[in-house]
Simulated assay, not measured.
Amino acid sequence: MLPWLAVLAALGLPAGGVSSWDKTQIKQLSQGLQHLYGNISRLIERGKLGPADFFTTVSRKDWGAEGAGCSSQLPKPLEVLVIHHVPGLECHNRMVCSQRLRDLQAYHIHENSGCDVAYNMLVGEDGRVYEGVGWNVQGSHTQGYNNISLGIAFFGTKEGHSPGPAALSSMKGLVSYAVQKGHLSSRYTQPLLVKSENCLVPPQKAKPKKVCPHIISRSAWGAREAHCPQLTLPAKYVLILHTAGRTCNKPFLVGQDGGAYEGVGWKVQGSHTAGYNDIALGISFMGTFTGTPPNSAALEAAQDLIQCAVAKGHLTPNYL
């Protein structure tokens, strides 16, 4: 078994926390974690690691779940993976995370008229994996995808923050385990990505085309003055959303005409995704796409924007 504390010690994490770290130390930790993820993935592929070697699972019984009320079965293997981030349930140990999860289940059942907690599996900020409705039962996490996808959610993160290293490591191991055990296809995709690309594995080679598409500026579409904080660049993540029929404050908006409309711009924080606004670029399709994807022109424009962001240094080449 690989204790998480041993991993952190090997990477040089001080016992007192990270408040005194400089940028060099943070970069070294990030590189160390990437190396760790790669090693774990290779060992999993070779069948030398089981689930207990890279994450700890807390069963429904152990976190105190109410009786399961969902019964619709999922096919195997699933072709689609959906990863959510549930804000506002801060926890850092098993006892508190279990209570937060019981609260979430009660909310989904009693307030949202669901049959159970909405997700198949959940990853706590404590680094543990909590069983939701399980691998084989249909969740209610994403309208239009529940019957064809595996839904996994991060929870327990402090409001305004992204998941920590322990949670990220467990998520990586959990997805690899799902593929290894046949719950998820090795060629799985995530919704609204061009040409079935896997957003956890960024393209190794940029498409041979012009660096950036034509972007319709704020002044051209008549934007009002913005008062938003600066974004930390280069961003580590790209969040792809849709406006569901409303105009939203996203860094970039993509229309069905294939046009890219400047939102708050490359260097300014949007308000698109709690916990990621300071480290992620947000690209939003204008319209509602819960059942069908945007058209090819819009999808192509979004992919061009991502490649443009990498080329201009606004987005790291190994983005998620």
Rank of each mutant, 00 (worst) to 15 (best):
R246F: 08
G124Y: 09
Y237R: 05
G270D: 06
E90K: 05
N147A: 15
G263V: 00
S20L: 10
C248H: 12
I215W: 07
L200M: 08
Y107D: 10
D116H: 09
V129C: 07
V80M: 14
K158S: 09
V137P: 01
Y237L: 12
T232I: 13
D304W: 10
L104G: 02
L239A: 15
T56P: 03
G313Y: 13
R218W: 03
K158D: 00
I279N: 10
H84D: 02
T57W: 00
N318T: 12
V7Q: 00
S72T: 10
T189M: 14
P163V: 12
A9S: 13
G313H: 09
D116A: 08
V310N: 05
G64F: 06
N318K: 10
A220K: 15
C97F: 01
D53L: 05
R187N: 15
Y107P: 06
P163T: 10
A223N: 02
W63L: 02
I148C: 15
S162F: 07
V194S: 13
E79R: 15
W135F: 12
M171D: 00
A10T: 11
E225K: 09
Y145T: 09
C199Q: 13
C228W: 08
G124M: 08
S98V: 05
G222P: 01
N249K: 13
G282T: 08
G132V: 01
I240D: 01
I109H: 11
K207P: 11
I283H: 02
W4I: 14
S30Y: 01
V80S: 07
T57Y: 02
G17I: 12
G144S: 07
L101W: 03
A153C: 08
T292I: 14
S219Y: 07
L193F: 10
R128H: 11
G255S: 12
E197P: 06
L281W: 03
T157H: 04
P75K: 04
S284D: 00
G69C: 12
G156Y: 04
V18I: 14
T232A: 14
S98Q: 03
L320G: 04
K181L: 10
Q303R: 07
Q230Y: 05
Q307L: 10
M171Y: 05
G17E: 15
A226Q: 11
C228F: 07
N277C: 13
D116T: 08
L305E: 05
V117H: 03
S296Q: 13
Q269T: 01
T288P: 00
D257K: 07
P234D: 12
F252P: 01
P251H: 11
A226P: 05
Q256L: 02
S186W: 15
D53M: 02
V175H: 04
V254L: 10
P3N: 12
K267M: 14
W135H: 11
I44W: 06
A220C: 05
A106F: 11
A118T: 13
P203E: 07
H108P: 09
G67L: 11
A178L: 02
S162M: 04
S140H: 03
L253S: 10
C97K: 01
I215T: 10
A297V: 09
T273D: 05
L150C: 03
N112W: 09
A280T: 05
V129R: 03
I26G: 01
V18A: 11
